[in-house]
Design a protein around this nucleic acid. Sequence first.
DNA 1: CTTGACTCTCCAGTGGGTGGAGACCCCATG
DNA 2: CATGGGGTCTCCACCCACTGGAGAGTCAAG
Lengths: 280, 280
Amino acid sequence: MLGDGGRKRAVVFRIGEFSRLTLVPVTTLRYYADLGILVPAYVDPETGYRYFSAEQVPLVNRLLVLKDLGLSLGEVKAVVADELGPDELRGMLRLKRAEIGRRVEEEQQRLDRVEARLRLIEKEGGMPGQEIVIKQVQAVRGLGCRDTVDQMGIGPMFGDVLGGVMMQGATPSGPPMAVYHDPEFDPAAVDMEVLIPTAAPPSGATPGGREIVECVVPAAEAAVTVHLGPYPTLGEAYQALLAWFSEQGRTVGGPAVEVYLTGPDEPGGPVTEVRLPIGA
Amino acid sequence: MLGDGGRKRAVVFRIGEFSRLTLVPVTTLRYYADLGILVPAYVDPETGYRYFSAEQVPLVNRLLVLKDLGLSLGEVKAVVADELGPDELRGMLRLKRAEIGRRVEEEQQRLDRVEARLRLIEKEGGMPGQEIVIKQVQAVRGLGCRDTVDQMGIGPMFGDVLGGVMMQGATPSGPPMAVYHDPEFDPAAVDMEVLIPTAAPPSGATPGGREIVECVVPAAEAAVTVHLGPYPTLGEAYQALLAWFSEQGRTVGGPAVEVYLTGPDEPGGPVTEVRLPIGA
DNA sequence: CTTGACTCTCCAGTGGGTGGAGACCCCATG
DNA sequence: CATGGGGTCTCCACCCACTGGAGAGTCAAG
């Protein structure tokens, strides 16, 4: 058309023209060429210049469409290079559909959380002091015992169990924990389990007066918060957790667990993690 | 508690214990520490060991919550470090809300496209030969002319315009284009505009018999496809495009544009890009 | 031949980590 | 007090899909 005198030379474009034709940036074209996804029709062995043919424009479009459907460049390469059949392609797209669906769901939930947080800020004028996080806590194995005591007996029980475990020669592998088996807190009769995590628990003997046995706190999905301050103020943490449960429309799925990250002798009071399992 | 003889030493955890407490991987804790997001309570200057205090557990939870709301680590750092007020935080969250909303929208549309493609594959048993892509095509400036000719006059018109433009000494900056101004194709009277893109267009003179003037193809959002094969088969491309418009529930927003990437003398026929603007 | 636009290769950086290599440290036991 | 095993350190590379820059070479018009 533009001269060429009848010699049959394929119509090729340099990378810049091709970029203008396809609206794909030059650097990206080079990147695709290096990855082998869009191999130039001809590469000058002297200069390294890449030349693309007009027939490659629809290939670029196919590539863009596949990318737009959410395929990674590796998958795109497999599709355009290996010419994989409609079955594999269908399978791949079904996977993508599931994956994108999941992502939509996730983002929607994230959006809900952001909106809840915004409402909270509007109402309270700032971030709350204690955050509530969902965690998949794994099971904890250790030594301890379960007993029903009144409110005043809680402190002594810790000392008792701790002393008993030490007497057994076991080495704590983490901070002490307690499980409160009563759904309601009754100051007169607290059904609680105190345990010290240990790596390889040797078995039973008696300390001050209670029997030390192997105990397990089961794995759970739990709403978790951390309370800073003396034990009488732990109720705030439970209030916040229960408010969260009612706000989320979820139910409590098991007994509360407290983890005593720091003892009561610290300046500023102890640090206590409170876990409330989420119902199935 | 564990001895310590009454000396006031803060309860600190090594990175592994802290990781177990917070369920954040050790490597990630180190990463956050390096970024200055979660600075250890104490770093041993001799060994470099990082020690975290129990008071930092709620800080980690706050961090996780913020990250979960979609903030980047940089933003999280700004929030936890600079203690920025509720106003900035609110603003940031509002931005996030908009951003996440956009992303939900996008992913939803992507999901729709994947499902449409899956339906297509089920029906046709494979990928279509020609893909349709949405592109923001920018305006093209050049030399050419508009005329109404019959079907047989299209070819000569190209030769005429091309010759005229060459005679002006202008250098084409891209492949020839044509705009078809009739909504319907009437073989007896085709209202078409032929133009050759040029960088700095010099103005008017006459070639074989038509006046060459400066022309512009406006920028547009267009559905684009590329057709391989002789011109009489271009109807397939238009059919595919119109099917796409009706499937997408969109309307055509302007005259069709054809870009002649390759001339008719190529083996295998010419390569032609067809653009149909999308209505506002 | 010069000039300016274009292209080449190579390297670095993005974000939010993950994994490994090789060296050092801590602690409990013998 | 030596030793062993597990924990921790730093540094580097890798993931994805690009994007930007430096410095050198190339192409085409005047």
